[in-house]
Amino acid sequence: MPDPTLNEVIAELSALEDPKARAVNERHGDDHGVNLTKLRALAKSLGPQPDLARQLWKTDDSAARLLALLIARPKQFDRADLDAMLRESRTPKVHDWLVNYIVRKHPNAEDLRLAWIDDPDPVVASAGWALTADRVTKRPQGLDLAALLDVIEARMKDAPDRLQWAMNTGLAHIGIAHPEYRSRAIDIGERLRVLEDYPTPPGCTSPFAPTWIAEMVRRQQG
């Protein structure tokens, strides 16, 4: 059976459009109406398709781009591709999936982390901080954690939302994964009070760094 064409896949995405899903997604800054569970099922049925992924990305449609990221192979893109794609990512979900599913698995991930973390565009910088938070937990060797805390302490309070969230994640990860910096991380969180009042559903952990750190350490020790 031949692989589906771009138009056929777009038609399938259109058939998945749900006004209720769109309303929920729009509350989070996203502009599509496709249930993500159904989107993942479509991606699974398609399997890896690098050429189709590129075509879907070029449509500039958020649902199509999310599907593209699920059926792409990280190594099909070069560094310049990924930098351009990040700057084209207009919505939070596309941005997050690009960083998590493609950039983190790419051979140039560290190079891009360093290039993005101080970018003047706060959305681009937030990707650099998201990659840094990942390294703090998984591959901290070579990171200057004290210097990262210095930057967080100086800049997080007044950072735009998405950059602030990524920096706060870095702060929490340092406190959770590195006991020698835990007291300082908690102190920074307590003084800056970033995300202290963030609405947190029952049973979920608050993103307020001191609470987040304490809960995760409790689980590790329990």
Rank of each mutant, 00 (worst) to 15 (best):
D158T: 14
M85P: 07
M1G: 13
P140G: 10
P4H: 07
V194D: 01
V24K: 08
M1T: 09
H32N: 03
H28K: 09
R65A: 14
N108V: 15
N7Y: 08
D3R: 10
K157E: 00
H178I: 11
G189P: 04
V124Q: 01
T200D: 00
D18A: 12
K44M: 07
D158S: 15
V94T: 15
F208A: 06
P4I: 10
V151D: 06
L69K: 07
R113A: 09
E88R: 15
D51H: 10
I213S: 05
N168T: 09
G128A: 08
G142A: 09
H95Q: 12
G33W: 04
R113D: 00
S14Q: 04
Q141N: 06
M1L: 15
L163S: 07
L69I: 13
R219I: 12
V123G: 07
G29T: 10
V103P: 06
E17T: 14
Y181I: 05
L16C: 13
T200Q: 00
S14T: 03
I174D: 02
R40A: 12
K20L: 10
L149W: 07
A130W: 03
P122N: 01
E88N: 14
D158R: 14
A159E: 00
L171Y: 01
C204F: 08
E17A: 15
A133C: 11
I176E: 07
D81C: 13
I174F: 12
L192D: 00
K105W: 04
V124D: 00
N25P: 04
H32L: 06
K75R: 10
M156N: 06
A53T: 02
V103G: 10
K93C: 08
